[in-house]
């Protein structure tokens, strides 16, 4: 199955990919990072975890990625497999500077023992999806910040994983690049049908991108509200300027601010 074959079922009839049940995470020293986190991720979902710093959104992502174990509760993958079918995009591009763009995108396959030539078509397809097929032989240092991020996204997509985790991937980019990458991410999602969990602290980004926004609060980290965004994909400038967008952004923003203690900086 190539990346393009997946169809996206509408909300409601989607199959679950991942169930997080009553997960607590307490760090050594007793800091409660997450309390009673429950979440079902369905095939084709675009979920944003939105919250202030310290609300445990990155911790939630690391738990899902299998980089940490929950203190309490369970993370269940549908079909019984573990978290070995994931794509991840970090806040930094996290590319290997000694390897070319194509070699970087090859990494997930390479770790599964696949030779470059056997997956070359998939690598070039992923690079074409992010518009970088001409830069396959370039080194990361020759690329701009936005382009490096695209390579990182191509690497996450290339194996057509069940779930893609994105940890504030565009936070370090300038506003113009960021909007462009938001648009591109949605067209990628439309074409590949990828399931995405997207961590952000930007209200507007979460409303623009996702169909489910999970607003989180800090101390202890927890989900306080789920906001559905029913606007159909593909979304573009019309969605960004619509009254519905503004209304949901307002609702999301109000929810977010209700969690902050008086005088606390956002």
């Amino acid at each position: 199955m190539t990346a393009h074959d997946r169809t996206i079922p509408s909300l409601g009839q989607r199959d679950p990919v991942l169930r997080i049940q009553e997960v607590d995470k307490t760090f050594n020293g007793g800091v409660v990072a997450l309390r009673r986190l429950s979440l079902t991720v369905n095939q084709g979902d675009f979920i944003s975890l939105l919250g202030p710093s310290g609300c445990g959104k990155s911790t939630a992502l690391r738990l899902i990625a299998g980089l940490m174990r929950p203190t309490l509760g369970r993370i269940l993958w549908e079909g019984g497999q573990g978290s070995d079918d994931l794509g991840v995009v970090f806040q930094e591009p996290t590319l290997m500077p000694w390897a070319t763009v194509a070699q970087n995108v090859w990494l997930p396959f390479r770790l599964r023992g696949k030779s470059f030539n056997s997956v070359k078509d998939k690598i070039m397809e992923a690079l074409a999806l992010v518009g970088l097929e001409k830069f396959a032989g370039s080194y990361p240092r020759e690329l701009s910040g936005g382009m490096k991020m695209r390579v990182s996204i191509a690497r996450a997509l290339v194996t057509n994983p069940r779930l893609i985790l994105m940890d504030e991937p565009f936070a370090a980019l300038d506003e113009i690049t960021r909007q462009k990458l938001n648009d591109d991410l949605l067209s990628l999602k439309a074409r590949t049908g990828a399931t995405v969990i997207f961590v952000t602290h930007s209200v507007f980004e979460s409303v623009f991108l996702s169909d489910r926004i999970l607003v989180m609060a800090a101390r202890p980290g927890r989900i306080i509200k789920e906001i559905q965004v029913d606007a159909p994909y593909p979304r573009g400038i019309e969605w960004r300027t619509s009254a519905e967008y503004a209304r949901i952004a307002r609702e999301t923003s109000d929810t977010l601010h209700s969690t902050l203690e008086p005088g606390e900086a956002h």
């Binding site: 299998g66 980089l67 994931l86 991840v88 930094e92 996290t94 990494l107 770790l111």
Partner: peptide, 21 residues
């Protein structure tokens, strides 16, 4: 790079792969 190390963990790289790549 610690993020690349995390990536290696996520992709279940073996000890040898981590060393080599």
């Amino acid at each position: 790079d610690h993020n690349l190390r995390d990536l290696m963990n996520i992709y279940k790289a073996t000890r040898w792969q981590r060393l080599r790549f």
